[in-house]
Amino acid sequence: MIAAQPQTGTDTSPLLQTRKLTRILPAVVPVTLVQDVDFSVGTSEFVAITGPSGSGKSSLLYLLGLLDRPTSGEVLIEGCGTADLSSAEMASMRLAKIGFVFQFHFLLPEFTALENIMIPMQKLGRLSAHAQLEHATGLLVDLGLEDFLHRRPAQLSGGQRQRVAVARALANSPDLILADEPTGSLDSAATEQVFESLQAIVETQKTTVVAVTHDMDLAGRMQRRVHLVDGRIDYDRVQS
């Protein structure tokens, strides 16, 4: 494994970049999930990662989100290498710079929609308690959930939960949102709502969204599409 040295970010560095990114699961017969992936994503991009099942889409996303460590290669965020970061430093970077949306909402069931959104804010501690409440409320209102602020996840519909998850991903105003099949468990109406929410984030907040999806229609509506086959990039093209 070639350990890449951390680099100092510059204004011209892409938001997200990978260098020969490889992830192999150790086993009796090692399983290659991602292999030699080189690509970069700039600010305010809406990127779809597509590919057949088992092509390494989610594995790539976890590597990009610093939830997993590559076997070799490196992820650079704003030009800074992450290979040598400790797990605490990676957690800190996730907290401040990256938001996640998963296929299942993954909200904390004991907390209300508002509390779920405020938890990452409280952890970061960038805003005052009042400002946190105001920001969290604003996010939910923007996503059309003003009537559900104090509902727990179990009291919300699938689409509403997923929109709360999107709001939570935006809580600390990250530069990058990574979404893993964000509409995979939703009906078509809810899918449309969540997609529009993500699109609005890209357009209005200049936040980059990288979303893994099976839905070719949705992928076709995003600015750029990276297609994976067997853990490698098959094609990477900008869509009109």
């Binding site: 989100g65 939830l67 797990s87 605490a88 957690a91 800190s92 970077m93 996730r94 907290l95 401040a96 990256i98 996640f100 998963f102 993954f106 909200l107 904390l108 069931p109 938890i119 990452p120 952890k123 970061l124 939570r168």
Partner: peptide
């Protein structure tokens, strides 16, 4: 276990 994964993905370190 799932909540632990959520908190970690949100940026809570192991010590937390």
């Amino acid at each position: 276990a799932r909540d632990i994964a959520i908190l970690k993905s949100l940026g809570f370190p192991e010590t937390d």
